[in-house]
């Protein structure tokens, strides 16, 4: 197949494989903290950043990343403000993001077409700079999680116990928040802002059904997401489908499969 030799496809594949590792890696921590929806919020705010970037002529993905970072801190701040209503902070920031994005869109009607690439994802438009950004985000995330794996396990399993054992809780919470913003904004060009959170949550949802331990669940989540990304991109190229959507639908198929497998194992 010629398409596999196409540099656009190769860049897409590399970008997809990189995000395929990071998204579930950070996702498992978010899901276990009941913050699955944070991905959606950050991606919508990120889109506002992308739109502003296009409006003022700054690298859109970079601007999106800055917006996502700012939003992640705002969420943390609001989460403390409304202690028991963690989801309220997510809803507030999500609305702010969509409102801002809409405002910026209306200011620059000319770039509507390229914005849709960020909304629905357009992995074939990944350029070298995008790939570099995704590569750096992946390296930072993988390095951080592998160096602090046991501390993060304790923090997310039992935050109080982690605090009592003297771990720098605030540092870890801020770090995870920042990493989340990085991963989400790096992923929006690949699957699109509307589907980013699926890459963060569905592999984890599938792995949680089968995992025998925490380590096992992390490995399984990354495995599911990689399988979906690689096969999804190949299928999309072959049949000329929307790549982001194909990847996400494959993930959903895997999730359904885990339901079947689990049922058969139990009987």
């Amino acid at each position: 197949m010629d398409i596999f030799l196409d540099p656009f496809f190769q860049r897409a594949l590399v970008g997809g494989v990189l995000i395929g590792v990071t998204a579930p890696l950070i996702g498992i921590f978010l899901v276990l903290r009941r913050l699955s929806m944070i991905g959606d919020t950050l991606s919508h705010v990120s889109i506002a950043g992308v739109a502003l970037g296009m409006l003022v002529g700054v690298y859109p993905l970079g601007m999106g990343l800055v917006f996502a970072l700012a939003a992640s801190f705002a969420i943390e701040k609001l989460r403390k403000e409304y202690k028991t209503y963690a989801e309220l902070s997510i809803a507030i920031i999500m609305s702010a993001g969509i409102a801002l994005a809409t405002l910026f869109f209306s200011l620059g009607r000319g770039f509507n077409i390229s914005v849709s690439g960020y909304l629905f994802g357009n992995i074939y438009t990944l350029d070298r700079l995008d790939l570099l950004l995704v590569g750096i985000v992946t390296a930072v995330t993988v390095l951080f999680v592998s160096c602090n794996f046991k501390e993060m396990f304790l923090l997310f399993f039992d935050e109080e116990a982690a605090a009592v054992s003297g771990l720098p809780i605030r540092f870890y919470n801020v770090a995870v928040t920042m990493l989340t913003a990085l991963v989400i904004s790096a992923a929006i060009k690949i699957v699109g802002a509307l589907l980013v959170s699926s890459l963060v949550t569905i592999p984890v949802a599938a792995s949680l059904r089968l995992a025998k331990s925490f380590k096992h669940s992390v490995i399984l989540a990354v495995l599911f997401s990689e399988l979906a990304v690689v096969f999804g991109l190949v299928l999309a190229a072959w049949f000329n489908l929307a790549p982001g959507a194909t990847v996400v639908l494959l993930l959903i198929a895997f999730l359904l499969l885990t339901f079947l497998v689990k049922r058969n194992l139990r009987v």
């Binding site: 276990l32 009941r34 046991k150 501390e151 396990f153 304790l154 997310f156 399993f157 039992d158 116990a161 982690a162 054992s165 003297g166 771990l167 720098p168 949680l208 995992a211 025998k212 331990s213 925490f214 380590k215 096992h216 669940s217």
Partner: peptide, 19 residues
């Protein structure tokens, strides 16, 4: 969180983690 996929030995070992 009772759905957290941690094993007993993972939980017990976490008692050794500190600064």
């Amino acid at each position: 969180n009772p759905l957290f996929p941690a094993t007993v030995s993972e939980v017990v070992t976490s008692g050794l983690y500190n600064r």
